[in-house]
Design a protein around this nucleic acid. Sequence first.
DNA 1: AGAAAACATTTGATCGATCAAATAAAGTCG
DNA 2: CGACTTTATTTGATCGATCAAATGTTTTCT
Lengths: 365, 365
Amino acid sequence: MAEFPTVTDVALAAGVSRQTVSNVMNSPEIVRLDTRTRVEAAIESLGYRPHASARRLRTRRSSTIGIRLDPMIDGISGSVLDSFLHALTEQADAKGLRVLLFTATSPEDEIAQFRRLNDGADVDGFVLTSTSAGDPRTKWLLKKKIAFVTFGRPWGSDDLNQPEHLWVDVDGWHGLHSATRAQQEAGAKRIAFIGWPSPSGTGDDRRRGWHDAMLERGDVPEAELARLEVVTADGVSEGTAAMQRLRAAAGRIDAVLCASDSLALGAMIANPERIPVTGYDNTPIAAAIGLSSVDQSVDEVAAGVLELLTGEFEGRIDAAPESTAPRHRLVKPRLVERRFAAIPMDPAGTPTRSPAVPAVDPVPN
Amino acid sequence: MAEFPTVTDVALAAGVSRQTVSNVMNSPEIVRLDTRTRVEAAIESLGYRPHASARRLRTRRSSTIGIRLDPMIDGISGSVLDSFLHALTEQADAKGLRVLLFTATSPEDEIAQFRRLNDGADVDGFVLTSTSAGDPRTKWLLKKKIAFVTFGRPWGSDDLNQPEHLWVDVDGWHGLHSATRAQQEAGAKRIAFIGWPSPSGTGDDRRRGWHDAMLERGDVPEAELARLEVVTADGVSEGTAAMQRLRAAAGRIDAVLCASDSLALGAMIANPERIPVTGYDNTPIAAAIGLSSVDQSVDEVAAGVLELLTGEFEGRIDAAPESTAPRHRLVKPRLVERRFAAIPMDPAGTPTRSPAVPAVDPVPN
DNA sequence: AGAAAACATTTGATCGATCAAATAAAGTCG
DNA sequence: CGACTTTATTTGATCGATCAAATGTTTTCT
């Protein structure tokens, strides 16, 4: 009994009943002030912690959200998910929610996991990332009326209007538009874009941001604009190749915008003149190399995801909230400007800052 | 009742009692074959899933391990933890364990989280990463007799002999030793090392691997060896600066080994002659750039962590197993050799492979 | 003051599974 | 064949919390 006090122990110590202790924890406002403080003192002195599983069994609510941990294909763009995961965990914690991980080898397998976790009352809802058009997972979750929010718009046109489908996304158009603007204001006229092949929901969105900003300014005739654009698969070496194609075919280039930091890093490798390159995702790589990059503001995304998931009931998750609150959030990314400060491209150059000696292991692990 | 069948429903359907159903799930061997199949059929047809919380309440076991998600400082080396996390989740899943995330702002805060998660019966044990010498967290966990395993040796000499402290680590000495050997066999004699300032448990360990291999071969006199070594904080720009210092002071260099991929990437930037550079961690960056790198085999680490944590009782976690099994695992990393295949450093060169057009979004999110 | 309403606290039942002990069935052996 | 093991299955109690409803207490109002 000394090991793990229960509500009953606390009740005994405070001279009240179990339920009053429970009330102090869950709806303090209905307990008279003096009893409340007495109970709180007892809780404190006994070091009581509620037993999560017992509570869940009774309330049929786990206060846990499940998220699939994707196999990391590209560590560069993967780091966005990584920091999103971190932001999500941190903010979930503040709301008394927990984050449970799982993995899956295929969409079908993932659905099986959904079932297992949901039926077992392990989680109350899910956060999905990397959704694709006509995603079978969202269909299934909707059918089963299981709460979920996706990070990423459902690009399939029909899905977009489904009001049950909650989503949070980053406005890629806005990101590229403002990145283009920033270069224009710095004096650049011929701004190139290295993107992904169409159709790609996010890719096309970002491309349009660049395209629209270029048209608005009118520095380059619309017909000419195609020469300033190159599409390729994502990746560092692909970025290098794309940059080389641009240099061969596009004439003068004042700045280059890329659909990802991977591409941007690649582009930098074939960029001896140090034409300004802007990436997307603001990964640690961009910071290390000194690339400007569009930051997805994962904190805001995480906050939006949790808000939607918990609905207006703080800390609770409901599969079918009848609120009329907006069903989605479109987060504005922000441009982080850098000027290659960290990268002495010229081998003969002097280092920009002398190496600091850390007090502890740089990489303790 | 149609919504969520319970053991009782299954029992009714199969014409047996609750407990028999429970036995079929937990110790099938004690149930007669024909009853077992009958119960299994009922489970299948009703779509029964055990209620995790109810089971946990009764068994006082959550089958969940907690792991702190570090704030990602450097996305490059952070990706090791990321893939470790993935491996851990995947293998935990196979053993019927779940992985619960949490965050903390300081060691003290983390200890508070330990307490909360453990007292609330949310988790059975913890996996710690980024441990430091004389870590207060491990002390506290040991005192409270809470199960945990660290990824990383306790470098403090006194801690090393504590048999209660279970750990899994990667043999950095072996990693650097074999990387050095590989370069020597390829004909290199003057092999430089870019490392971290001492004292650093992991850093010194890796350095020794290089140092010992160099001495064994004897291509470079011991006195001369210091000229081939540079220490610096971790980071890309630090790597670039370190490489420049090496080039200025070390004379001829046939190959460069680095204590991390971040340093290696930095070194590559100040490496127009394409001296072979080897990194550490085999991050996606290394793959993208075409750097050789020492792979930490996170899969083996994850397996070791889970084995130690679950002890010999498959799927169970015990704070004080009385087995005499080894208390730790030292995993041998393996060298992944690459030859800059992906990186056309010469801006005028042709791309090494033409960009493939992906069928789906390269980065769907 | 007395009745009604508002507030505060307690009691019994319950969530779904497993444990421990009791019972029933099958197998062994002199 | 009946007493004795061994094996298979069932019953009652329990894990720790919350819900729903009952009881007790205080305040409000006529």
